[in-house]
Write a protein that binds this DNA or RNA. Sequence first.
DNA 1: TTGTACGCGTTATCAC
DNA 2: GTGATAACGCGTACAA
Lengths: 328, 328
Amino acid sequence: MVSIKDIAKKAGVSISTVSYALNGSPKVTTETCAKILAIAKELNYVPNAAARTLKTRETKIIGVYLTDFSGAFYGDLLQGVNEMLHRKGYDTIVCSGKRSHRMLPERMIDGAIVLDAMFDSDELLRYAELGHKVVVLDRELNHPNINQVLLDNKAGATLAMEHLLDRGFRKIYAIMGPEESYDAGQRLQAVKQAVERCDDLTFKAIEGSFRKESGEEAAKKILAEYTEPAAVFCMNDEMAIGVHNYVSQTDYVVGEHIHIIGFDNVELASYMQPKLATIDYSKHKWGALASEQLLKIIAGEPVENERIYVTLVEGDSVGINKEASAQR
Amino acid sequence: MVSIKDIAKKAGVSISTVSYALNGSPKVTTETCAKILAIAKELNYVPNAAARTLKTRETKIIGVYLTDFSGAFYGDLLQGVNEMLHRKGYDTIVCSGKRSHRMLPERMIDGAIVLDAMFDSDELLRYAELGHKVVVLDRELNHPNINQVLLDNKAGATLAMEHLLDRGFRKIYAIMGPEESYDAGQRLQAVKQAVERCDDLTFKAIEGSFRKESGEEAAKKILAEYTEPAAVFCMNDEMAIGVHNYVSQTDYVVGEHIHIIGFDNVELASYMQPKLATIDYSKHKWGALASEQLLKIIAGEPVENERIYVTLVEGDSVGINKEASAQR
DNA sequence: TTGTACGCGTTATCAC
DNA sequence: GTGATAACGCGTACAA
């Protein structure tokens, strides 16, 4: 491994001169500088990040923490993060799993963007307390070193429920997300509020895990007790796709007997037959905004918590309750 | 920032004793050890990665380099990498973009897995020459510090072409990938070989970029000159989906007038109507094998280049050429 | 303008 | 068993 020491030796100058030259300090002659740079190139010199970090205490790298690498969902988000950070002179790395948490306290990264329920809030607070900067996308956490950029889950869930009610459905299921998911919890709260505003409603919440299989299981239960057209609000698209798939295998018809709306507007949603109704938001913007906020708190600028807004995307997976309409 | 020095002071021992205790060396009394550990916990001690790396020259982190974060395609691959590496005591980080290349020569990672045509082969060879370990998934590169784990592209492309020929098509299009893509190049070669083995064939290769839009554009051209049922081999599924979408918007019917086969078997493929025929392979295994190979060369074990095998997945996007059958 | 010397936090090698 | 001390590679104040 070639260090500035080697360059200094070969150039017949001191290491500090080399360091100055490499960092473009004005304290060194243009010719010595040129000579040093030439030798550095010749020797294939690469500054050692570990050594530099030891001194400067910054790496110009931001870590994004995700539960896993699987979701088609994450692509746009990461693209948003990456674009913003690159523009500002930072690199992005994506991490998953408990073991990579150490990169934050060990200062291998200058800050973290967290969308990972497995990353404990207490742990995050500890790090924030130690001076590390964090933006969370999946929880509420108040600390000077932590900023929130959250989805407007309640608005989304309310939009979804009102869409189902508008279409005349009075028998409604909600397939929940995993308990540890903040987003799922918020959505469920809004659902319950919407339900309470209606009195002529049959409502049932079914457990779910945000995974396709749990959508299929839920669909099985729903069909087992089928008596009249029912609407299902799945708290993410993946489960909605599970329900959709399961129902399509039976004699029941999506958009006629079983009406489905999801959340996230993943790419697949618009390819389902019939097309899946869902709640949309800009994943790209979410990522970009989160990065922007993170850089601000790193720079010590004051920041407000931010929110990402959502819209309803209609689809034929939600039809009209003809029976209800007829009764009116 | 609390260091072992602080712990040593508080415990009234030397820093070396602290280091031993922290690393579970047997050279230290159980009680001193316990005492030191207690103080470390109390002080919220976190070992400094930069300092350790400076000394040990290893980070236990592997970097995966991708062109971008967008592909739904990458999920399984990364999952495969991550599982294997975690089992072996390593962390995974995912990087994209030229700027993050420096992590390899700067020793922030112990090795790299590369699936990114933007990562120059010359650059990789330079790094390998400097002693850094790399596994490439998208090129052939011979160097003691570089291993290859490649898809069997030629077999896949041959399978696809033979499927189209078996179904009686004699008018065949191939939509190519970007020029810089090794995989696309290999597939094209196999296609040309298959074409040469047949003499009663009308064949045409159309430019493509692996993106959905280029599939749509190609479809436009193909339909503009439509005279008889034609088959299209798209060199990845994304373009196949583009073709599929475009054709579906017209009066032509996929699987009747235009027959489509893709490559990759992305999740969406099986949801297309009609279902997309494609070439399948285990992305998960690809990632796992690549990581395994990388750890081997890091450990200095001898390794052979590996290959990932592929299979044909039939789908109704490829029908039967009735006209051809009738003629026989 | 250039050189010297020290600090950063850890590990390793010796003495004791 | 424990402690002092020298690396590791870079940045930088201070001296020359």
